[in-house]
Amino acid sequence: MKLVIAIIQPYKLEEVKEELYNVEVNLITVSEVLGHGRQKGVTEVYRGSKETGNLLRKIRLEIAVNDNYLEPTIKAIVKGAKTGETGDGKIFVLDLKECIRIRTEERGTTAIG
């Protein structure tokens, strides 16, 4: 089991969601976050808006998947979020030790999907 954490451009969320649905990854958690990488606070998107400081608005996705879903998930996120410009974001993949569905108390790979 893996936990995929992706940081993407806010305006790409709809496209990423669409791509994830296409590979049958339906369970995602979305949050709005601030951060910056190489962009130093000015992107093509927020052009000129230096007043907002150097933290940019991003969307963070968390997706827990079974191993065979990992590559499709990564490909879907890249396909939806990539523009080729600085600021497209990052994907982190972590090993996931355990997963418990609260309603049924199922554990592990059956609890994930």
Partner: peptide, 21 residues
């Protein structure tokens, strides 16, 4: 299309209405 996705506040006026922090 891109300006529409990003939103008119930022692309037409370089301002935004709400902040997170």
């Amino acid at each position: 299309e891109k300006d529409e996705l990003v939103g008119l506040d930022l692309t037409q006026h370089r301002e935004r209405a709400y902040t997170i922090l």
